[in-house]
Computed example of a mutant assay.
Amino acid sequence: MSQKSRDGDDSWPAAAADRVVTWARGLGPSAGDRRVLAIEGRSGSGKSSLAAAVADRLGAALIRMDDLYAGWDGLDQGVSALRDWVLAPLAEGRPAIWRRWDWAAGEYAEEHRVPDGRWLVVEGVGAGAPRSYLSGLVWLASPAPVRKQRALARDGDLYAPHWDRWAGHEQAFYTANPVHSQADLVLDN
């Protein structure tokens, strides 16, 4: 999603990021000495814009779930990768190394090491599922028609043929993992 939201108004991500950062500064470590903040919500809810602004303000590393999903049917695998490659190693005091999904090649590609730091922000569908590793969980809520319009405006023809397929995966995931009900902070966008 572009930095613009709500009919071209780019003030929402900035104001929301300020609110999230003010709230998050009171959170304690959750994965070793790292504070992990998940920004979660359905596709098109504004997670990417908010997460980038929050990570910037906190001086945090940012991991996007889009880089961990194993393709259009890989939501669950992406959540497992987040837990196994990133959060569990951090909690155990080990380096966290994850592999980026190459959407064009249809396979995992190069490795990335999570940089040292006090904060890690993870954004995307499923980011909040490994709850025991999180300092805080932010849920973004938006009506389905607005989310779809944003997602298709952002990714256009790349996403359009997969919208219903991905929405089905989201629905199944959230039915099995009621992440919204575990959120510490809920924002409407």
Results as ranks from 00 to 15, higher is better:
residue 73 D to Q: 15
residue 174 Y to K: 03
residue 24 A to K: 00
residue 147 R to K: 13
residue 107 E to G: 03
residue 125 V to I: 12
residue 11 S to G: 12
residue 102 D to T: 09
residue 133 Y to M: 07
residue 125 V to A: 09
residue 60 A to Q: 04
residue 155 D to L: 04
residue 96 A to F: 07
residue 67 D to H: 11
residue 55 A to V: 01
residue 146 V to F: 01
residue 162 H to L: 01
residue 39 I to W: 03
residue 108 Y to S: 03
residue 9 D to P: 09
residue 86 V to R: 02
residue 181 S to N: 08
residue 155 D to T: 00
residue 70 A to D: 11
residue 45 S to L: 00
residue 21 V to L: 07
residue 101 W to C: 00
residue 102 D to R: 14
residue 124 G to S: 05
residue 161 P to M: 06
residue 48 S to A: 05
residue 98 W to C: 13
residue 97 I to L: 15
residue 168 G to P: 10
residue 84 D to C: 07
residue 73 D to A: 15
residue 11 S to K: 06
residue 48 S to G: 09
residue 131 R to G: 12
residue 76 D to K: 08
residue 157 D to C: 12
residue 82 L to Q: 07
residue 42 R to I: 11
residue 14 A to C: 11
residue 40 E to F: 00
residue 161 P to F: 01
residue 28 G to F: 06
residue 90 L to M: 02
residue 120 L to P: 00
residue 137 L to I: 02
residue 10 D to V: 09
residue 55 A to Q: 02
residue 15 A to C: 14
residue 3 Q to Y: 09
residue 106 G to Y: 01
residue 6 R to E: 06
residue 65 M to R: 07
residue 186 V to S: 13
residue 65 M to N: 10
residue 119 W to F: 03
residue 69 Y to K: 12
residue 65 M to D: 04
residue 173 F to N: 11
residue 167 A to L: 10
residue 3 Q to C: 07
residue 176 A to V: 08
residue 44 G to N: 02
residue 51 A to M: 07
residue 165 R to Y: 14
residue 123 E to A: 06
residue 156 G to H: 12
residue 106 G to C: 10
residue 187 L to I: 08
residue 120 L to G: 00
residue 61 A to K: 06
residue 4 K to G: 11
residue 78 G to R: 05
residue 23 W to E: 10
residue 184 D to M: 03
residue 45 S to H: 03
residue 25 R to N: 13
residue 133 Y to E: 00
residue 151 A to D: 02
residue 136 G to N: 03
residue 59 G to C: 12
residue 150 R to W: 12
residue 76 D to R: 10
residue 151 A to Y: 02
residue 135 S to K: 06
residue 116 D to P: 15
residue 151 A to N: 05
residue 154 R to E: 06
residue 70 A to P: 13
residue 78 G to V: 02
residue 38 A to M: 11
residue 172 A to S: 14
residue 156 G to Y: 09
residue 169 H to W: 06
residue 54 V to D: 09
residue 170 E to K: 08
residue 42 R to S: 07
residue 158 L to A: 14
residue 182 Q to M: 14
residue 89 P to K: 04
residue 74 G to Q: 12
residue 73 D to T: 15
residue 162 H to C: 05
residue 65 M to C: 10
residue 6 R to P: 12
residue 84 D to P: 15
residue 173 F to V: 10
